[in-house]
């Protein structure tokens, strides 16, 4: 059987924006996924000694199964090597360098059949964004990172001032979360089936909304396309396997505006999960949308 494509997420953001802090969080949050994180250098990767299983020249292995490695000069060769690994990780995360265009990297996930598009997460330093955004030397490239994002993570603040948010909103209308005010980032960044929806350190109400379904829904490709076209715009992630007619099935991967549908071998049931930002969407809205197909409305 063909292996399911490996989701690849690109973490973008200017120097010092907080990409490494986000990566440190993803490596240590309880999401039950084996991540492979490729970083430019280990300089600021800061893993609790207790979580480190082994340390080699260019690879850190964690006790939770996550791996962090440096990518060397050629990112694409490094991605190729990840795809050749057995077993493959559950999710590949790439830290783009400070000035890089994340689209150029993320496009590889759209192009390569063995990868699936896991989104572009752009980390924005709330304190400096106004200045950087208008910088004559790098403003255009910084703004490009923001408008390319599927999810924006604001760092170095707990509350976004109106000016900060205006500055970001002028460039992008996608989901925006404040890192320091969010207990668990993994579900939004990874779209993970989390081991525990309420991590022990959480403040009681999660920062995200999640919904999942398992059942005997069967959709033709046309029906699936239509269903996805009508999805709530604030449903940030939606993924899973949808049964088609006559022993067919589809792997569906939705991140923000990006929809990927790839054929796969038929399974027992349709299994999907949806995630959105708390406050922007409710489980009821997701359920209502999904029920349009369950009810055979198509």
């Amino acid at each position: 059987m063909k292996i399911a494509p490996l989701p690849m997420t690109v973490i973008s953001g200017y120097l010092g924006a907080g990409k490494t802090t986000l990566i440190n969080r993803l490596l240590s949050e309880d999401h039950g996924q084996k991540l492979l994180v490729m970083v430019n250098d280990f300089g600021s990767i800061n893993i609790d000694e207790k979580l480190l299983a082994s340390t080699e020249d260019d690879t850190l292995t964690l006790t939770n199964g996550c791996v962090c490695c440096t990518m060397g000069a050629d990112l694409y060769i490094a991605i190729g090597k990840v795809l050749d690994r057995t077993p493959r990780p559950d999710h590949l995360i790439i830290e783009a360098s400070g000035i890089a265009d994340p689209v150029k990297i993320a496009n590889a996930a759209k192009a390569e059949p063995d990868l699936s598009y896991g989104g572009i997460i752009t980390v924005v330093d709330a304190q400096t964004i106004e200045t950087l955004s208008t910088d004559v030397m790098i403003g255009a490239q910084i703004n490009g990172q923001i408008s390319a994002a599927d999810l924006i993570v604001a760092s170095k603040t707990t509350v976004l001032s109106q000016k900060m948010s205006q500055c970001i909103r002028a460039l992008s209308g996608v989901e925006l979360v404040v890192a320091n005010a969010t207990d668990s980032l993994a579900p939004l960044v990874l779209g993970s089936h989390f081991a525990n929806p309420f991590p022990p350190h959480a403040s009681g109400h999660p920062d995200y909304v999640s919904w999942s379904f398992q059942g005997n829904v069967v959709l033709s490709r046309r029906q699936l396309d239509h269903l996805l076209a009508c999805r709530p715009t604030t449903m940030f992630r939606f993924k899973g396997i949808v049964q088609g007619p006559d022993e067919t099935a589809w792997i569906v991967q939705v991140v923000g505006n990006q929809v990927e549908i790839t054929p796969t071998t038929a399974r027992e049931k349709t299994t999907v999960v949806a995630i959105g930002v708390h406050g922007n969407i409710t489980t009821e809205e997701i359920k209502d949308w999904w029920s349009t197909c369950e009810n055979g409305a198509h």
Partner: peptide, 11 residues
Amino acid sequence: QEMAAMFPLIR
């Protein structure tokens, strides 16, 4: 055009 689109073939 560009490495991402060429990647599947390069590989």
